[in-house]
Design a protein around this nucleic acid. Structure first.
Lengths: 383, 383
DNA sequence: AAAGCTAATCTAAACGTTTCGGCGTTGTCA
DNA sequence: TGACAACGCCGAAACGTTTAGATTAGCTTT
């Protein structure tokens, strides 16, 4: 007899069966069980029952084989495997989830899927999670809190095992939704206080502070700020960084130099338009994210202004093309890879149960990347 | 008596119940049923059974109310609704799917989630599908066919009701996977022949042909071409367009001017590097997608060349920032909105059963957007 | 007043898995 | 040689819904 021992390392991931090559095995016993069950119950997909019938074993054995949860003899493994192949069986995840209570699916909502920052994070989260055997359900709330809440509801109803949320914002519904679920939740990018869940965020205040200090160092005194959605921690913290930098330099912040761009390109355009048509316009512009800076650049172009000649520009969030087109934008890069990986493993750890009871909040540092979109302010002739 | 009539339009979407205000209704009958079932079966979430007990009705009635599938009296509606609210019930989608055979979830795989083109399509597909009550499971195959196949398997096992695939490529596994499922499938961006499924694609040949003609019109004769993955229909058709344009102009294509950039930035960089260091270098470069053009621009910059001064550049796929940074790229824009909407409704139609038996293939037109990254070739002094 | 209809509610049988307990067979050890 | 454990396999009971069919009760119709 061959290989009766326990030396079979089998991938627990269903779909890749060990292909046993055991030499001659009696195929005469194959298929001699009653196949009376007509295989046409509901015109549906083949089930484990069909596999069991075809292979002439019990359902329990098929299940044991597929999950590697118990020892199955080499002969039966072979029979079951070819039965599966023959009838094209695929496991029904709904039934499995119903029984086990786990879906091996995690929900992911981000504020805006079109934002390269989120796209990068999504790609990484998806990769890590896929590798761990989880599927990802993605939703983009398009910076709309109501939509976001609806999506969280949708995901929770779909019985996701966990949730990663890059919130558009927070309202009472969001908070209740998150608090009422027992599923692990990880917040990314934007903190929501008092939820008692894990989070991985940027030190937004420090990031913007450093960027504004750089601008101040170049000699700018009137720095326009295009802020992010006011209702978010991220928007708030970044604005704080801006104010703190000015305060450190002994400059009283001019409230007129701050406009809300709601993290979106169109609103960023509007904000920049307003700022750059001020009687005494700013010599530099800082955008609290990458989408708004596109709007800002468009506004600058539409006004016939040049960057950095007429106005210096910098922003939060780097993008792949920032250093190949001009002006080569000065940005604060977020550690997207780390954010995605940390968020995924935080969740995976909670799921595995090896995480401390108290919530973990990871605060990462941004990195100022100086390119050529900022210069010393030019002296204005008038006013 | 109030409102006994059938005038109640109820949203079939679970989660938003009609809040009935019917005046005084006897609450004395409320909760008088036996609540002996201890509500602690498995420490799990509350079930329909719990709701039924709390409201003092049968499970069938709860189900009827939630799904709006049968008439339920106003009084019971009220009782059930507050029971749901009270115990925080949320429907178990796994059980529901097991019974109905539908998950109201669709799977979406794209070749590269970091590509703004796919991002846009994803955003739109997701929006349309969410609106129709479907969740979206997203996977990015990162231009890796094996990964893509694994993901399709994952999605199919998760019992998605349908699949939208933006293929990284095609191999035998892909074809077998798609052919073996009975779920509706819609292909986007890249066609796979002989699958008999719906698809929405661009007229890639025509799109590139037009762009190359534009370049030829400017006087270019040596046009470098950075091609997409050779194994894809899209890559093939675009290259065809390039060749056809040259042929039409009576130019024999120089095979040395075509390099594979595999639709990725890094490979695009390499391809452009090779092309621009040729003894007799091209006066224009066309990139078969948007990611590779970033690599190409980086190569041009690294070589100390200028665009469009030393070399004209154009590419497939537009992006939001293409007209605010310089050089303002000349691109062929794809109708992303239409692609996403058509793909989603094709799928929705199949699911609803009102689609013709034969597969539908929608071919959309691209639009050449002329900006400032192309100019007439400058005469080279040497050779 | 009997019969028939409709509306409202309930009972119970699936759906396709997982998993616990049980039961022969072998093999081991005293 | 008998007791006992280990192994390999199976039967059957969940998991939480949906839904067809049964059962009322209240009306209308003849």
């Amino acid at each position: 007899m061959v290989g009766k021992g326990p030396g079979f390392t089998r991938n627990t991931c269903f779909g890749r069966y060990l292909t046993l090559v055991l030499g001659a095995i009696g195929f005469e016993t194959f298929r001699e069980m009653d196949l009376s069950k007509p295989r046409g119950r509901k015109s549906g997909a083949p089930t484990m029952i069909d596999v069991a019938h075809t292979a002439g074993v019990s359902i329990a054995t098929v299940s044991a084989f597929i999950n590697g949860s118990a020892n199955v003899s080499a002969e039966l493994m072979l029979r079951i495997e070819s039965a599966i192949r023959e009838i094209g069986y695929r496991r029904n995840a709904a039934a499995r989830s119903l029984k086990t209570g786990a879906t091996h699916t995690i929900g992911l909502t981000v504020a805006d899927i079109r934002n390269p920052f989120f796209t990068d994070v999504v790609a990484i989260v998806q990769d890590v999670l896929n590798r761990a055997g989880f599927a990802v359900m993605l939703c983009s709330s398009d910076e709309d809190t109501a939509k976001q809440d609806e999506q969280i509801r949708l995901l929770l109803e779909r019985m996701v095992d966990g949730l990663i949320i890059g919130p558009a914002g927070e309202d009472e519904v969001t908070r209740r939704l998150v608090r009422s679920t027992r599923k692990p939740v990880v917040l990314i990018d934007r903190m929501i206080a008092g939820l008692g869940v894990d989070a991985v965020v940027l030190d937004n205040r420090a990031a913007v502070l450093e960027a504004i200090q750089y601008l101040l160092g170049l000699g700018h005194r009137r720095i326009g700020y295009i802020s992010g959605a006011a209702g978010t921690a991220t928007g708030h913290d970044r604005l704080e960084g801006y104010r703190a930098a000015l305060a450190n330099a002994g400059i009283t912040p001019d409230p007129g130099l701050v406009r809300d761009g709601r993290f979106r390109e169109a609103d960023g355009y509007r904000a920049a338009m307003e700022l750059m048509t001020l009687p005494e316009r700013p010599t530099a512009l800082f955008s609290a994210n990458n989408l708004m800076v596109i709007g800002a650049m468009r506004a600058i172009r539409d006004l016939g202004l040049s960057c950095p000649g007429d106005v210096s520009v910098a922003c939060m969030d780097d993008f792949p093309w920032a250093d190949v087109f001009s002006p080569r934008l000065t940005t604060v890069a977020q550690p997207v890879k780390a954010i995605g990986e940390q968020a995924a493993s935080l969740l995976l750890n909670r799921l595995a149960g090896n995480a401390p009871p108290e919530p973990l909040v990871l605060t990462l540092r941004g990195q100022l990347i100086i390119r050529s979109s900022c210069a010393a302010p030019t002296v204005r002739q008038s006013a």
